[in-house]
Design a protein around this nucleic acid. Structure first.
Length: 374
RNA sequence: GCGUCAUUGGUGAAGUGGUUAACACGCUAGUUUGUGGCACUAGUAUGCAAGAGUUCGAUCCUCUUAUGACGCC
């Protein structure tokens, strides 16, 4: 069976909504945050540890798994769930985001048929098409496949975005036509940068193709302003059906998640919690802290006393700083646990706020606390 | 006791008679939003063992002292 979305409640004062999704690997509430496990692993964590953070769906990447170990190997292993031992739903990104950043010459390498680019592993010349991306995802047997789209940079012009999203629509159709995994949902992706008419066009045309869910892409890009990100959401959401999931791709800054939820987004994914963790930083209610900082050398208190994660229950900032500065991998793992739990807890609280119709108050309180510099 | 060679930041070290003493590590701080890359960016010796001299000018030349390594009685 494919995943199903049920809208449970709409918040009174905003577009925020409470929902649930039924999958072959359990039922989960939305809004939800999806940890990122690009190469079929959330870096440094076991699936059990990820689950203990309260995870639902996790994300893996088509491009990376295509190159290594190859979709046929994953299929032989019994599919992605068995291969990586994750007993929960998995979404695969199409690889578009990676491939476009690896294409050297945007004019020449991005063709109507597909994208030419060089492998990041050995530099070999490769070619990925919408059909190929979907076929790989079919074999990986994830629960949700993403359409192969172009994710243009924030600096792209109106004309570039217009042409790009039209091609992305044609690619979406081509991908849908070859999609054959009956247990796998397929999502379409809305593009169009911060432009109202482009977003409207992209959204309505994508919806006409009738996907199982819709995502808002092209955000959280190099140097894009917050304002443009919020515009991209605001201009897309009104044209998306209420009975389908809305996924904001790549967003994971705590404040952006709140702003996204208020604007009607259901799911998010982001490398931020795990990446900053490996670089020594932790989310806290009072903003990010950097465990590399020497002021934590003799700090034998948890990252956050009030946090219910495994890391905060058992380890101190002084110890984690020691692990980080000595480049012990456990440091990144412990911080990843905390950061993932932080974002998942945030979505749990947002769900409560939607239930109680007080999400605007929640946002004000959260931002006030988060923005104070300690 | 005599001779030779050395002495540059927290560490390993480049280097030149003339504006800001290379580089690396470390340290300090920042960045990170559909993860190629535990990465990237920035700062970090007002001083080149100490003192004196030569010179318009010395970390780089000369002398003395100190410390160290090696060699010879």
């Amino acid at each position: 069976m494919k995943i199903k979305y049920y809208l449970k409640k709409k918040e009174k004062n905003t577009k925020a909504r409470l929902g649930k999704i039924e999958t072959n690997y359990g039922t989960y509430d939305t809004p939800m945050f999806m940890p990122v496990g690009t190469r079929a692993t959330i870096k440094g964590l076991t699936p059990e540890q990820v689950k203990e953070c309260g995870s639902g769906i996790v994300l893996a990447n088509t491009y990376h798994l295509w190159l290594r170990p190859g979709e046929d190997i994953v299929k032989k292993a019994g599919g992605l769930h068995k291969f990586m031992n994750y007993d929960g739903p998995i979404l695969t990104d199409s690889g578009g985001f990676q491939v476009f950043s690896l294409a050297k010459n945007k004019e020449k390498d991005i063709t109507e048929d597909g994208v030419f680019f060089k492998s990041h592993i050995d530099g070999s010349n490769l070619f990925l098409t919408p059909e190929k991306s979907i076929e790989i995802q079919n074999k990986l047997d994830s629960d949700i496949a993403m359409s192969f789209d172009e994710c243009p940079p924030a600096s792209a012009s109106y004309d570039y975005l217009k042409n790009s999203l039209e091609r992305t629509l044609r690619w979406a159709k081509r991908g849908k036509d070859v999609h054959s995994n009956k247990n796998q949902a397929l999502f379409g992706i809305v593009q169009g940068g911060p432009y109202k008419d482009l977003r409207k066009f992209s959204a309505t045309e994508t919806v006409k193709l009738d996907f199982d869910g819709y995502s808002i892409g092209g955000v959280a890009n190099d140097g894009e302003s917050k304002d443009d990100m919020y515009k991209a959401i605001d201009y897309s959401i009104p044209y998306l059906p209420e009975d389908k999931i809305r996924y904001l791709m790549g967003v994971g800054d705590p404040i952006d998640i709140i702003e996204g939820v208020i604007r009607g987004v259901d799911i998010f994914d982001c490398v931020l919690p795990t990446r900053i963790a490996r670089h020594g930083q932790a989310f806290t209610r009072c903003g990010k802290i950097n465990l590399n900082n020497s002021k934590f050398i003799e700090d034998f208190t948890p990252i956050e006393k009030s946090c219910d994660c495994y890391t905060c229950k058992h380890y101190t900032k002084g110890y984690i700083r020691h692990l980080i500065t000595t480049k012990e991998s456990l440091g990144g793992s412990l911080l990843s646990i905390h950061n993932i739990r932080f974002l998942i807890k945030l979505t749990e609280e947002l769900r409560d706020a939607i239930k109680n119709d007080c999400i605007l108050e929640y946002r004000e309180k959260f931002i006030k606390e988060y923005s104070q510099k300690k």
